[in-house]
Design a protein around this nucleic acid. Structure first.
Lengths: 134, 134
DNA sequence: TTAAGTGCAAACAGTTTGCAGGCAT
DNA sequence: ATGCCTGCAAACTGTTTGCACTTAA
């Protein structure tokens, strides 16, 4: 499993930009749709390959939120997510929350930890205070 | 989506017992293997159907831990899980941790919450202190 | 020049589902 | 007798992969 030398393909750049430039936590299919506007011949397989590669490289996060599809996140800081039960939107939770879980667990369990995956379901900001506006 | 009246099939009983009587958080396939010892003609499809049904009924938990397969948990109290990066074992985290996340979030975010899914990766109890024993 | 990257389509894995018959109520 | 449940196998869905070709370095 040696680290290959990565080249800089147009496709990979576009995929990275697409994920970085949105805060909606797109799925592979959604990234595909975005990227296709710049490069109509890109294939879905290439999008998947690059998303996985970029996640391995630590440039983006691959999120398994317990919903059907994987989502991708343009940041690489550890933070949880809220999945809205009303509209399906995905909202970032403050990093501080993950950090405090980490420290609590290190104290209480006295165990090395790798990653923390925190997902909560509930109403997003929009849905919880915007009922009448819509 | 009316609630059907549930019958009490032998298969469903066996599936429930299988999940309840272990703390290993089995996959559907593993439940299938266990149940097959009592009922060699049960089908994997039936196991899946009953696992989902029992989870809907709130008798067990369906866990998406970010690994390939879903796992099932015989308890119904809200608690997180640790997935061991060395042996793959799944360990329960104290319920108190999820409870404290819930209260923190209710204070900080002032938002209704449905469920909390907390998964951490790291070494399980066995792997973190039992290196020499093995 | 050469090996990483691509597009395409087929394969894959876990899970779900349609159907005809079986069994709890 | 009714209709929920089963076993079976086929279908489904999101994702991965093999192959021949292309392209960055």
């Amino acid at each position: 499993m040696a680290e290959n030398i990565r080249r800089n393909s147009k496709q990979r750049q576009l995929v990275l930009e697409a994920v970085k430039s949105t805060c909606t936590h797109p799925t592979a299919e959604e990234v595909f749709q975005i990227v296709r506007q710049q490069n109509p011949t890109i294939s879905l397989g290439t999008v998947y390959r690059n998303l996985n590669l970029l996640a391995e490289m630590g440039l983006i996060l691959k999120l398994d939120l317990g919903v059907e599809r994987d989502h991708f996140d343009g940041t690489n800081e550890e933070h949880g997510h809220l999945v809205c039960t009303r509209c399906g939107a995905i909202e970032d939770l403050p990093c501080a929350l993950s950090a405090s879980i980490r420290s609590t667990m290190e104290h209480e369990l006295d165990r090395q930890m790798d990653s923390i995956y925190l997902t909560v379901t509930g109403l997003c900001k929009e849905c919880s205070c915007g009922h009448m506006k819509q």
